[in-house]
Structure formats: structure tokens, C-alpha cells
Nucleic acid binder design. Sequence first.
DNA 1: TGGGGTGATATTTTT
DNA 2: TATCACCCCA
Length: 659
Amino acid sequence: MLNQPQQQAVKLTDKPLLVLAGAGCGKTRVITEKMAYLVHQGICRPESIYAITFTNKAAKEMQARAIKLVNGGEVLNVSTFHALGLRILQQEIKHTAYERGFSILDTSECQKVLQELLPKGLKKEISNQLQWQLSGWKNAALRPEEVNSTVPMAVEIYQSYLDYMVSINAMDFDDLILQALWLLNKQPEVLNRWQSQIGYLMVDEYQDTNASQYLLLKKLMGTGSHLTCVGDDDQSIYGWRGAQAENLQLLQHDFPDLEVIKLEQNYRSTSTILDAANAVIQNNPHPFEKKIWSDLGQGDAIQILSYPNAETEAEQVVADISFNQKVNKKNFNDFAVLYRSNHQAKLLEQALRLNNLPYQMSGGRSFFDYSEIKDLMAYIRLLVNPKDNAAFLRVINTPKRGIGMQTVQQVSALSKRLNKSFFVACSDNQGLSHLSEHAQSRIKPFVHMIQQHQTMKESAEVVVTSLVKQLDYVNYVNHSANNKVAKINKVKLVQDFLKWINALGKSQHLAIDELLNYLSLQTSQDDQTKEDAIKMMTLHAAKGLEFEHVYLVGVEEGILPHANSLADVDQEASAVEEERRLMYVGMTRAMQQLKISYVKKRKKRFPEEKVVSAGGPSRFLDEIPHELSNGHPSVKRSAEDQKVNNKKNFAAIKALLGD
DNA sequence: TGGGGTGATATTTTT
DNA sequence: TATCACCCCA
């Protein structure tokens, strides 16, 4: 049964609508119910309803829920922002500077491309910074000529990066949004087509949109009123990625007849947890007043615990979970341990393993970060897009086939002379004759092998399996790893990849380019088997999820809020506000029980295990009203202590940056 | 020319 | 705890 404001939100279909939904207030439910309402009332056909999420997982879940509610729900368009951009670009490819089969490069591949474009003498270190800068401009939907930078060189590189990416027929993640936007801006008839195709648009986690996503959204809407955005400014935690919660206000400005509906009744947590979370988030400025509540009873007090060191923290948390699980006959699924950054998971993992408890980590290192998977992806990219120089360079000597720098340089020169991509230049027999004997003899078999697979008409999994076999890739992996454990893991990794592709191929017939697109937009293996296991993840990864028992670990100054958010004096206020929202997100994941811990001494990770004093309990702990927690340590820091700590952190950061 | 070995070096959050 | 740059050997 929907409550009053939820029903309002579902039934309001003739005006643009912003739903401000607190954590756990049923926002996804509103979207799925609204899709059903639109279809069943005959307002929209399912295929003209578009719903946008930020993660694949959310999209999949929403799709599944919608199918249960909507007749013909299979044809609803539920996708991530990036997948929608991809779809537009692919469908309208002839109106762009790109060609069919363009590659999508992940962040690290793009960085390599960028490094190639850096003028000589510029060191690798700045490429990372530069990449952030370019991404920032792209997220703000700025063309090079619109950029106002104190560093003209950076703008030049931006332009050459855009040009180079077109020349190798490749896009980065930001391009999927940006190029789609630029296309719609430029081609009125394309815009028309899409505007009429989209009967109703819904956006989940709206507070996470960046400028270019917002512009795309607005473009697709036109003057239409068929828009529902659902979001929560208090859960905006992707500011570092260009997300601007101000888009909530922008919506009001750009759509004057916008209706705003608030969802404040929470169906997830006890009132103790919600009151505490409200108290914490109250310390941030609020453009929209909102206070979530529930009638699920008071429940347990929040526990705030301190431990001498991180090892003890991990042991105790694990012991507590183990005890609780046995005594109260809970599922492991009911427990989650949340932390600010990935490396904090290590000690917890050790403790869980020591105790033989099942656990599942999400986030962290993605499947696609492993070099073996990247190699195979690059091979597939080269099959689909022969212009993909980045892929060519990655695989040309992996596995080793006696092609080194010298040969690659010859190829590079040849490609310049012919004005063709590396691979295409190498497929040109006449051109090849200019290379050295040695180079020719090594390049030719490689080219043949790729060409042979390019022309295969079979479905994707057959092509990939054949490719891996012909590369003798498993054997290569087996010989390349030094350590035995790594060896076994990496072989398993490759086999898992093949298994995954084969399973995929069985459920739906995919051509190789379709497979590549699918894989390129996957980040981690979202399709993990749902076993009964303790969940471990970062606070970012936890958004949208809920657990009966939540453990928030390492809630210390310097970790949450993160040291980097304290370092930059100019941005301190807004950076700390985002950290506070992270805290808020973490707290509101808990349904029944919330346990927060911090440690007194924490080992620095590098250079050597050195004991340094931790930053002390987080300022956010002071913001939790005492009557809602027990076991609250009385070591409340004075304002002076905090200042000293901040200064120390700041000095440490400065020293690190060599400032 | 390529391959392999050895030190230094860096870790916030992710589509 | 890896990865990467660099250097030396076949």
C-alpha cells in the first residue's frame, strides 16, 4: 500500500515532478509503481517509458521489479545514464564523427592515451591530474574553446585528446553522455526523433547528475512535462565526480511548473537510528527542509565503540557478528560492514577468513581492473574496431611474440605515413614491405590471426573462446605469474571470464560487438551469486541498500571525514559536508542495529607498518545525541584538539605534495 | 632488439 | 602489495 505522498507522486502525470525522498522512504517503489500506473491508465505505452539509474545493479533491479508490476514490462527502457547515451550514439552513429563499433575505453586506458599526447618532457604524474581536469570539463559540458583555464596547454591537450579519440574511433565514459548531448544539440531531426520517442522520463538518484547529464536530460525533455526526478540532496556523495546537487534547484528554475513532493516516512529503520542520522545531517545547510521518521519503534540504542587498534576493531566486529548471528539465528545476509575506503577491508577480510565466516565484498577491485581481463578486452576491441590504437598497443606483444619498442615505432611511423590506424596500416601488405624483415615476420602472423577472427560469423562466445585458445592465453598466464597463488588465481580469472561469456551467450545470442558493449559498461561483477554472506563494502557502494545490522568502522578524523577533505582550506566546508552525507548514508542503511567504531592507534599503510596515532573519533560522532547511543566514550575532543589534528593532517598532506 | 630482473613509489570514493 | 620505470644481459 502506498502512503499519501507516494500516491500523489505516482498519480501526478501532467506536470514535471521532483520527488524528494529521504533514505528508505520507498523512492524506487514510487518509480516502478508510476511506470505501472502510466501503462495501466493508458497514458503511455511501455516502450516509450524511459527510466534512468546510475548503476547497472539499480537498473537491473528496477527492471525486475517493474516487470512484475507492468503488463509488457519487458519493453520498458530501464538503463543507466551511460547506457542511454551509448544507445543514442549507436543508433545515430551516421550523424557523428564516429563509426560503427567504436570502442569504449576505461579510465586507465584513457590515461595511457593521454600520456601519449603529452608533450615530451611532461612527466607521467601530471597525466592523472590532467585526466581529472579533462573529465571535469567534460562533465561540465565544456568544449575546449569554452574552457577558461590558466593553463593554455591543458586546453590544447583537451582538444587534441578529443581529436585523437575520434581518430581511433574510441570514447571514454564521459563521452557517452557528452557526445550524445552534442549530437542532440547539433541535429534537430535527431532531437525530434528522440523527444517523440520518449513518452515519459524518470530519473532515479537525481542528486547524482552532473551538468552534462542534466543538459542531456533537459534536451530530451524539450518543453515536455513528462518528467519525474527522484532524489535526495542529503545523499549526494558524488560531488568529486562532478555531480551537483544544485541540479535539484535548477530543475525548479528550468521547469517553472515543477511540483515538489516530499517522502519522509521511512520504512526501514528504527526511530533511534533515524533521529541520530537526522541530527548529524542537520549540521549541513539545507535548501529543502526534510526530516525522515518511522513508526517502527525505538529499537536498540546506537553503539559507539572504541578499540585500541584496527586489528582489534576487525576482530571484535567479526566476533560480534558471529555471536549475534548464532545467538539470534540470523542469516549472514543480515550483516554489513561499511567503511570509507577500500583498503580498510583488508583487516576485516583476514578476520572473517580466520573465523571461517562467509563474506562477500563488493566494490573494491573490479574484475575489469585485472590486467588479464584488460588484455582480453583489448583483443575483443581490436576485433570490433580496427582503428583502436590503444587496444593494438596493449595486445601487440601480449603474450610475448617478439615485438618490442623498435618494431612498434616502425608501425607508428607507417601508420602516420599512410594516415591509417596501427592495425589497418599493418593489414596493408604493400605498406608492410617498408618495415624491417624482423618486424614483418612478427607482425604478419599477428595480423592474420586477428583478421581471421574478425571475419568469423559465429556468435560472440565462440569467437572469444577460439581467440583465447589460439593465443594460448591460459598457458601464457600460467607462465607469467611468479607466485603460485597468483598463478592459480589468474588462471581462474581467465576461466571465469570465459565461463561468464559462455553463460551470457547461452541466455541471449550476442554478436561480438554487442558483447563488447555489454562488457564495457559493466564495472564490477554485479551478477554475483546471492549466497548467504556478510556484506562488506564502501559507503559509496552501500547507497540504496539496507541491512538489519550495520557496522560502521574506522569513523575517525582523517578517514571519515577523509583527510583530503580537510586538507584544502578553500573547499573545506563543502568537502566536509559531502563526508557528512557519507556518514548519513552509512547510518541510514541500518534497519535495526547500528554499531559505529573508531580506533585509537592506526598503522600507516606505507612505507612500512609504522604506528601513528589516528585522528581520533570523528567529529560526526559528536553530532549524534548522547541519549540515542550507549557506550559513548567520554573522550570527547575539545575544539582545540580538533584544530591541532586538522593542522597536523594538513601539514602531512602538504609535505606529501611537496608543497 | 627483446626479455627479464630489480628497486622505488603510491592508495578516497566509480559509471 | 602490486605496479611501473629503469637497467643490464642474451
